[in-house]
Every structure is written in C-alpha cells, then in structure tokens.
C-alpha cells in the first residue's frame, strides 16, 4: 500500500520558475485494486507518479510504502523502484538493447537476480503482454508501434513490482490496441495483492478499468472514491475542465431533459459510466425484452 501524507512538490525551488506541481496531497493506494488517477495536463498527476517510486523526493510530506518512508535513504529509494514499477508515456522510446529479450531483462539484471530467474521473468513478462518467442529474439526497432509498446511495458512487468503504475498506457493506440493492452494490464493484479495505478486523461478508459478513482486538479485532489461516487460529482468535474465519460454525459443530459418534460428519472442513473449499466437501466425503463440485447456481461 502506498500512502501519501501531506505531500507537496515544488519545481524549480528558489528560481523565478518556482511552481508547485503537487500541493499538500494525502491519499492511499490500496492493495489489490486498480486506481485511476484523472486530471488534465498540469494537474500534477504525472508528478504524483514520479513521487510514488522516489524518482522525485517530496519538497515536504512523506510517501510511505507499506508504512515505511521511501525517501529515508538513497538505498531505500533505489530499492523502491523495483517494488513500484512505472511505465511512462510512450515507453517505446526507452528501448535500447539489441534484442527485445535483452531489453526486457534490463530491469531484472539491475535487481541483481540470477540468470535462471531473469530468464523466467523475461518469459513471464513477454507472455503477459502477448509477445511471442520469435519477437523476443528480434530487434526492438523492427517492431510495429503496438509491439514496441508491449515490449517496453514487459520491461517493467519483468521486475514483478508490487505496484504497477501506468502513465497513459494506451496513448496513440487505435481502439483495438487500446482495449487489448488495457484488458491485459489490468489482469496483472488478478489472484494476488498487487495493485495497479492508471494515470490518464481518457475518462472512458479510467472509468472502465478502475475500482477507485482519484480526480486531480491544480496539484490537489478534487474528489476520490469509486467511479460512480466520483462521477456523481459531475458538475464539479466539469467546472475543473475534466471531460466526463460519454455515457455519464448522456445520462446527465437525459436526466436534465427528463426533468424539464416531467418524465421520471432516477438521479442515481445519472452517474452511470458504462454502456452496459446505462443499457440495462434504459432497457428496463423502456420495458424491452432482455434476451436480445441482454447478452452482455456486467
């Protein structure tokens, strides 16, 4: 579990460019869950990611991993990086080795693991992201965009971090690539106490895959909770310039219009964010037979 306790981070302290990127923030990332962090550019969400594995040291406040301060000493900070793995935006730009296999092995090698363990982890990570054996032997620079992305993500997964932090993991991918990579990655915590943090400005992605959401604005936390709790604050979210998930938008509009026309509508339905939930509610309201469209899994 990661805990932020009154954490602030200031860029360029004592220079004319001084700017607080994160301002007195406290929250917890719980084990075994997918936490989504949303916020527009400059809201501090990427700084939060770098604070989580001690790439940045807080200007004030503490970041605790399972109760221990990760910035207590240089050695602890270094070791934290293997426990909290970060996949940065466009991670394919960090590939450097001759083969995909060697590149994935970079992290585990730095951890000082023995060869058989490194091999096991490379294979596990490749398998997890869906990279075949032939690709492992080829140069990372010959791969397609989507494959490069996976290879780079495998490089972090191979460290088997307890917490996997993903900064815009699906940026630039087409819809199929998006749902495939997000679907695979969110399986990482299955059957273990590992947790995932997805940082994104795509509301639909965060809403679909997260158990908890943290909405950030101007270096502070706007609201947090389960997706439906967070999306029930739609007016606040809108005001801070965050786009709501499409379905939430539609349901909100429907609610407002229903009120105008005197049609009954449940307020709770306004914070729905998946097609399935909205469909189920509307199908019931429209008294549709469920067998035709109701073959969807919740």
């Amino acid at each position: 579990m990661i805990e932020f306790s009154n954490v602030s981070y200031v860029y360029g302290k004592h220079t004319p460019f001084e700017r607080a990127a994160v301002n007195n923030v406290s929250f917890k990332i719980e084990d075994g869950l997918v936490t989504g962090i949303i916020g527009h550019t400059g809201s501090g969400k990427s700084t939060v990611a770098q604070l989580m594995n001690a790439l940045l040291t807080p200007t004030s406040g503490k970041v605790l991993l399972d109760g221990a301060d990760i910035n207590a000493s240089r050695e602890i900070s270094y070791k934290t990086r293997f426990k909290v793995g970060i996949v940065f935006q466009y991670p394919e730009y960090q590939l450097f080795e001759e083969t995909v296999e060697k590149d994935i092995a970079y992290g585990p090698t730095n951890m000082g693991l023995d060869e058989t363990e490194i091999k096991r982890r490379v294979e596990m990570a490749a398998d997890f992201v869906g990279i075949s054996k032939e690709i492992l032997k080829s140069s990372p620079f010959e791969l397609s965009g989507g494959q490069k992305r996976r290879a780079a993500i495998a490089g972090v997964i191979a460290m088997e971090p307890k917490i996997l932090v993903l900064d815009e993991p699906a940026a630039g991918l087409d819809p199929r690539g998006r749902s495939e990579i997000l679907g695979r990655l969110t399986k990482y915590r299955q059957g273990s106490d590992k947790s995932i943090v997805i940082i994104s400005h795509s509301m639909e992605d965060v809403a679909e895959y997260s158990d908890r959401i943290l909405a950030m604005n101007d270096g502070g936390i706007l609201c947090s909770g389960t997706p439906s709790e967070v999306f029930s604050h739609y007016d606040e979210l809108c005001r801070s310039g965050l786009a709501l998930p499409q379905i939430t938008n539609i349901m909100n509009l429907v609610m407002k219009k229903c009120k105008e026309r005197g049609i009954p509508f449940d307020n709770s339905a306004a914070s729905f964010f998946t097609v399935d939930d909205a469909y189920k509610y509307l199908a019931q309201r429209l008294e549709l037979k469920s067998e035709e469209g109701g073959n969807t899994v919740c």
Binding site: D174, P175, R176, I247, V275, L288, K289, G294
Partner: peptide
C-alpha cells in the same frame, strides 16, 4: 478494429433490442 462512439453503441443496442 474500430469502435463506434459509446453514444452510438448505446442507442444502437437499444434499437437492436
């Protein structure tokens, strides 16, 4: 490998039902 927007998807599902 393309998806219609969720708004299109939702209305289409209702229509299909």
């Amino acid at each position: 490998g393309l998806e219609v927007p969720q708004s299109t998807e939702l209305v289409r599902k209702l229509y299909d039902s």
